[in-house]
């Protein structure tokens, strides 16, 4: 027996790990992008589990759209990362505030 609370607990834990990755990691942006992916994955799991729980396909469709947005977001984020690396020759988070004007 797998209860819905176990599933939701696992997805919430994944989401919190993603938030912790954003908050605690101050070194490179790549880990932050990965944390965003983790959070989107947790949200997706939540949608799919509720879709099974409620016998409604809307959640799975919404998971597909979130998947689309996650792919687009990671593509754009990594492109920005590459462009930033060309300018600064490093991807440290601390020096981003110098990128003004």
């Amino acid at each position: 027996m797998v209860y819905i609370t176990t599933f939701l607990g696992v997805s919430t834990t994944l989401f919190l790990i993603g938030i912790l990755g954003i908050v605690l990691n101050r070194k490179n942006i790549l880990i932050i992008l990965m944390s965003v992916e983790l959070m989107l994955l947790a949200v997706n799991i939540n949608f799919v589990v509720f879709s099974v729980y409620m016998d409604d396909l809307m959640g799975q469709m919404f998971a597909l759209f979130i998947l689309t947005v996650a792919a687009a977001e990671s593509a754009i984020g990594l492109a920005i990362l590459v462009a930033y690396y060309k300018v600064r020759n490093s991807i440290a988070v601390e020096s981003i505030q110098m990128l003004r004007g």
Binding site: L64, F65, T68, V69, A71, A72, E73, A75, I76, L78, A79, I80, V82, A83
Partner: peptide, 17 residues
Amino acid sequence: IAGIILLVAMVGAIVLT
């Protein structure tokens, strides 16, 4: 709309890099 989002992301990534 999802397809258009993917297209916009592709064009944006190409333009950026």
